[in-house]
Amino acid sequence: MGSAESSSVEIHDRVDERDEAAEFAVRHAELARGYGGNGDPDDPALVQAMQMVLHIPKVDPPARSALLAAAAAAAVAVCLDSRSGPGGDWAARYLAWKRSRIRKVARRARGAQWVAAGEVEGVTIEVDGAQARAFVPGPIGAIDPRIRKLQIGGTDLAHDDPGPPDPELPVLWVNAALEMSVGKAAAQVGHASMLLAGALPVAAAAAWADREFRCAVRDADERQWAQVSAEVAAGRAVAVRDAGFTEVAPGSMTVIAVAPRR
C-alpha cells in the first residue's frame, strides 16, 4: 500500500514538473520574440514603462555592481514570472508594455519608502546585500503613488571593483565610457537581462531562473569593451542600444550581456 502511494506521488510530481516546464517555455517563447513594434500611444499618460526601485539607504549603501546585478535580475524575473504568462494576473499589463517601446525607469528609496515599495506588485531580488525591485509594467499616468513620489535622480554610487566574475554566471558589461548614472545603468542592465534570457535556449533560461537570474555586472574599460563588442559581432553576446531619451546619444551601445561559458 505504501509503495503504491509513493509511486502515485512521484508520478504526480513528474506531471507537475512537466506542466511547469511547458508553461515556462511559453513565457520564454514570448520573451524570445523580442519587443516593441506598436509605437507609443498619442496620449503621453498611456506610454508604457516598467518602474524599478533601488534600495539605497543613507547609511552603508550597497556596492554599485551588486545593486545593478539585483536590478537586472529583478527585471527579467518579472518577465518570466508565472503571473506574466497566459492567464496570469500580470499578463495583460506585461504584454501591453512588452509590445510597445520598452521603457524602464529606475528610482531610489530608503527606509519607509522601501518598505512601502515592497507592497506594490513586483519582484525583489537581493544580491550580496543589495536590493532592487521591479514592478509590473503599466502606463506612466497610472503609476502607484507609493512609487511615483520616489526620486528618479539625485543619488549615485561610486564605481567599485568586485574582482573577476564567477565563470558560471552571465556577465553584463557596462560601457564605462558613457559614465551613466546608477539609475540609467539599472534600466540598461534590465534591458540586457531580458535580451539575454530571450536569446538563451529555453533549458538554459530555465536553469538561470532556478538561480533567480543571478548575474555579474562589471564596468568595461576601452580594452574590455572592444573584446565584448567582438563577441556581439560574432553572435556570442547580446547588446543593448539605447534610444537616447536620457543621458546618452541615440544608438549608443550601453551594455553587453555574455552568457557563461560553462
Rank of each mutant, 00 (worst) to 15 (best):
L95W: 09
L95N: 04
A96R: 13
W97G: 02
K98Q: 13
K98C: 04
K98D: 08
S100N: 10
S100P: 01
R101M: 12
I102L: 14
A106L: 09
A106P: 07
A106W: 04
A106R: 01
R110S: 14
G111E: 12
W114T: 03
V115P: 00
V115N: 08
A116I: 11
A116L: 14
A116V: 12
A117D: 03
A117L: 01
G118W: 07
G118E: 07
E119P: 00
G122V: 01
G122L: 01
V123G: 02
V123F: 02
T124W: 00
E126M: 04
V127I: 14
D128T: 11
D128C: 04
D128G: 12
G129T: 09
A130D: 04
Q131P: 00
Q131C: 12
A134D: 09
A134L: 07
A134I: 08
F135T: 05
P137T: 10
P137Y: 08
P139H: 04
P139D: 05
I140C: 11
I140W: 02
G141C: 06
A142L: 14
D144S: 10
D144G: 06
P145R: 07
R148F: 12
R148I: 06
K149M: 12
K149A: 14
L150C: 11
Q151C: 11
Q151F: 08
I152D: 02
G153T: 10
G153N: 10
